[in-house]
Design a protein around this nucleic acid. Structure first.
Length: 626
DNA sequence: ACCGCAGTTGATACG
DNA sequence: TCGTATCAACTGCGG
C-alpha cells in the first residue's frame, strides 16, 4: 500500500524496539508516516500523577523523539496539544490520513477512549490497526484460555499462557522511517472541559495552568514535547530517568551479570538496599513502554537457558514478568471494577476504615468516608512518612522523593496500612501509590494491594509484617532509615527501629527528641511518637480479618452497597468503630469540631463521636473535598 | 464429597 | 549466627 498515509499514535509504547504495532504500521509500506503523541486531558488533569512521573514520561518522549530523528532527520515525535477525541476527526481530514495505528491498551479509561477513537476513524473512512505488545501474552487471549475467568494465581496464568502459545520473540527496531507529510493545523483548537484538576495542587502556580494556552503545535508551532514548566509543575525530585536508550542500557548491565540474572530470587532481594538497589529498576520503563516485556523476557531466557542452576518462576526475573501478566489478565477479565471493591466479585469485603464513598458525585474527585477520625489521622501521618515507625517512614519518604521503592518495601507499607496496623481500606493506599510510583500500573497496583490486604490472590492474613523486625532482618544497622529519616541518623542501632524505647542518654547522644505527631509545624531535632502500639493493633487487625473471612462477603454483594453488611459484623470491635448509620455521623462535613482530649481516644470510642480534634488534617480533608 | 497439600518473599522462640 | 519447629488455620486446586 504505497499510498498509505499513516498516523502512528504513541501512547504507552514509547519505544522503537519490539513494537508489534509499529511494525504493523511500517508493513503498510506507507508513503507518509507521522509519529505523534496527543495530549490527553484525562492524564493531564484527572489522573493524579506526581511530578516525578511526569518527568519520567517527558524523558521517554524526548528519547523516543531523538531515536526517530536518527532514523529520519525530517521526523520526530510530534506532540499535538489537544485531546484525541476532538483532535483526530480534524486531523484525519486535514492530513488526508488513510490509517491510524496504535498499540492496544488495557486500562479502563484507555479502552473507553479508544472505542471512541475507533468509531471516529470509521466515520472518517480511516482504517484502524492495533496490535498487542504490552504484556507477554495478549491479556484477552489469556482470559479466553482461562475459561473467561481472571487469572488469580501464577499457575493459572502459566497454564493459560501455554495454551495461548509461545511468547512472541522480539521484533527488530526499524532501520528507517518514512517522511512525515505536511502537518497543517489550521483548524480550531478545542480546549476540553477538563473537569476537576486533580493535579492542580501539584502545579507551582496553582490556578494558572498554562497547559492549553498554546496552539496545537505548541508555543513555537513545532510540535515540541512539553516541559514541566509548561505543565505548571515544579522540578522533579527523583534520580531515576526514563527513555528507551537508558532502558536498554540498564538491561544490558543486568544481563552482563550472568549470575545475578540466572539466580535472581525476588524474595531474597533486599528492600533496604540502595546504591545499588537489589532489583532491576526496569518496571518504570515497562510502564511507559520504553522497554518491551517480551524483549526483556527473551533476553533473560537466552541467558539462563544455558544454566542448570537458574532460578525459576515465580521467584526468578521472568517470574516477575509473569506476575505483571497475571494482573493484566485479571483486570482484563474483571473489567473496570478490578481496581475497587464495590462490584468486584473477586475481592473480599473487609470493613476497613476510610472506605470509598458508595456513590461519589461525578462532579467531585472520588473521595472517601471518614468513619473514624483516628484512622484519618493515621492515614495522614502515613502519607507524609511521620508514623513514628522509622522503617515505615523511611520507605514512605523514599517513595515520595524517588518514586520507587523495592517490592518488599511496598509489602511493608501495604500491610501496615491495611490488615497489619491501621485497618484502613486498601483503596486509600492504592491511591497514594498511584500518585507516587513511577511504575504505577493500575492493574498491578490494585492487584498487589488486594494481595497484601488479603482481599484477593492471597489469604494468609495471620502472616503479618512487623514494622520493626521485618526491616531489621534486612538492615540491622538501619542504613535506609538513616538516609531517609535524618532525624534519627545518629541513633544507636539498638533503637533505630523503635526510637520510643531509647533512653534519654541515647536520644541526647543522637540529638533527637521523640515527641508530637509529626503533623503541622514540627520542631527541629524531633521525631514523632509511634502512632499506636503495633502489637496491640496487630491483634485487633487479625481478629477483624478473621471475622471478615467468616462473613465471607465479596465486593459485588448487595450488602456491601446498601450498608447492611454492618449487621453481619456485630461484635467485631474493629468494624464497630466505624460507627456508621445511626445519628448525626457525617464527619466529613464536620468542619468546626471542638477540641477533645485526644489522649482518651482509644480504638473503641463507640458513639461518643462528633467532637474531634481540629488538626491540620481537617484542613486537608476539606481541601480534598472542595 | 472429601482430604491433603501448596501457596513469590512472616514472626518468634529455641538450641 | 544460623536452622528449625511452631504459631493458627486461610483458600484453591487436584486427586
Amino acid at each position: 500500500m504505497a499510498n498509505a498515509r499513516v498516523v502512528y499514535w504513541f501512547r504507552t509504547d514509547l519505544r522503537l524496539h519490539d513494537s508489534p504495532a509499529l511494525k504493523a504500521a511500517l508493513d503498510l509500506n506507507p508513503s507518509v508516516l507521522w509519529p505523534i503523541f496527543t495530549w490527553d486531558p484525562h492524564y493531564v488533569y484527572q489522573a493524579r500523577g506526581g511530578v516525578n512521573r511526569w518527568q519520567y514520561l517527558l524523558d521517554c518522549q524526548n528519547d523516543l523523539s531523538e531515536s526517530i530523528q536518527k532514523l529520519n532527520p525530517k521526523s520526530k515525535l510530534f506532540v499535538l496539544r489537544e485531546a484525541p477525541q476532538t483532535l483526530f476527526p480534524k486531523l484525519f481530514k486535514a492530513w488526508s490520513v488513510t490509517h491510524l495505528v496504535f498499540e492496544k491498551d488495557t486500562d479502563a479509561y484507555a479502552q473507553e477512549r479508544d472505542r471512541v477513537i475507533i468509531d471516529l476513524a470509521k466515520k472518517a473512512g480511516v482504517e484502524v490497526i492495533t496490535r498487542f505488545g504490552r504484556t507477554l501474552w495478549d491479556s484477552d487471549e489469556v482470559v479466553a484460555q482461562n475459561g473467561g475467568k481472571p487469572t488469580m494465581s501464577i499457575s493459572q496464568l502459566q497454564s493459560a499462557g501455554r495454551k495461548v502459545g509461545e511468547i512472541p520473540r522480539p521484533i527488530e527496531a526499524p532501520k528507517s522511517l518514512p517522511d512525515p507529510g505536511e502537518m497543517p493545523v489550521e483548524f480550531d483548537h478545542e480546549i476540553p472541559d477538563v473537569g476537576p484538576d486533580l493535579n492542580g495542587p501539584l502545579r507551582s502556580d496553582g490556578k494558572d495552568d498554562k497547559s492549553y494556552a498554546y496552539n496545537i503545535a505548541g508555543p513555537k508551532g513545532d510540535f515540541a514535547i512539553e516541559t514541566l514548566e509548561e505543565l505548571g509543575f515544579p522540578l522533579a525530585t527523583t534520580p531515576h530517568r526514563g527513555g528507551e536508550t537508558l532502558a536498554l542500557k540498564r538491561l544490558d548491565e543486568i544481563l552482563s551479570d550472568e549470575d545475578y540474572t540466572a539466580t535472581f530470587r525476588k524474595p531474597q532481594t533486599s528492600p533496604a538496599a540502595f546504591e545499588p538497589v537489589s532489583t532491576t529498576l526496569l518496571s518504570p520503563y515497562l510502564h511507559f513502554g520504553a522497554l518491551s516485556p517480551r524483549l526483556f523476557y527473551w533476553r533473560v531466557q537466552d541467558v539462563i537457558s544455558k544454566r542448570k542452576d537458574a532460578s525459576s518462576p515465580p521467584e526468578s526475573l521472568t517470574g516477575q514478568l509473569l506476575f505483571r501478566d497475571m494482573y493484566f489478565a485479571a483486570q482484563a477479565a474483571v473489567g473496570p471494577s478490578f481496581t475497587q471493591t464495590v462490584d468486584n466479585p473477586y475481592v473480599r469485603f473487609v470493613p476497613w476504615h476510610l472506605p470509598t464513598l458508595p456513590d461519589p458525585s461525578s462532579e467531585h474527585e472520588r473521595t472517601y468516608h471518614i468513619d473514624n477520625s483516628e484512622a484519618e489521622t493515621w492515614f495522614q501521618r502515613y502519607k507524609l512518612g511521620v508514623t513514628g515507625f522509622p522503617w515505615i517512614d523511611a520507605l514512605m519518604r523514599q517513595l515520595r522523593h524517588e518514586g520507587w521503592i523495592h517490592h518488599l518495601g511496598r509489602h511493608a507499607l501495604a500491610c501496615f496500612l491495611t490488615r497489619g496496623g491501621c485497618y484502613i481500606h486498601w483503596e486509600r493506599g492504592a491511591e497514594v501509590f498511584a500518585e507516587l510510583l513511577l511504575d504505577h500500573e493500575p492493574a498491578c497496583n490494585a492487584g498487589n494491594w488486594q494481595w497484601l490486604s488479603c482481599t484477593a490472590f492471597f489469604s494468609q492474613y495471620y502472616r503479618c509484617y512487623s514494622p520493626v523486625s521485618f526491616g531489621r532482618k534486612w538492615d540491622p544497622e538501619g542504613k535506609l532509615i538513616r538516609k531517609w529519616v535524618p532525624e534519627l541518623a545518629k541513633l544507636d542501632k539498638k533503637y533505630i527501629y523503635e526510637p520510643w524505647k531509647a533512653d534519654k542518654q541515647a536520644l541526647k547522644k543522637a540529638g533527637v527528641r521523640i515527641e508530637g505527631d509529626g503533623l503541622g509545624e514540627t520542631e527541629e531535632g524531633t521525631y514523632p511518637e509511634p502512632m499506636f502500639d503495633f502489637n496491640e493493633r496487630r491483634g485487633k487487625c487479625i481478629a477483624g480479618m478473621k471475622k471478615a473471612y467468616q462473613v465471607g462477603l465479596k465486593g459485588d454483594d448487595e450488602k456491601v452497597k446498601d450498608g447492611t453488611w454492618a449487621e453481619l459484623f456485630k461484635g467485631d470491635p474493629e468494624a464497630e468503630v466505624q460507627d456508621r448509620g445511626d445519628e448525626d455521623e457525617d464527619e466529613d462535613e464536620d468542619d468546626d469540631g471542638a477540641h477533645a482530649d485526644d489522649a482518651e481516644h482509644g480504638a473503641h470510642r463507640g458513639k461518643k463521636r462528633g467532637k474531634e480534634k481540629q488538626g491540620p488534617m481537617d484542613k486537608f480533608v476539606k481541601k480534598q473535598k472542595k
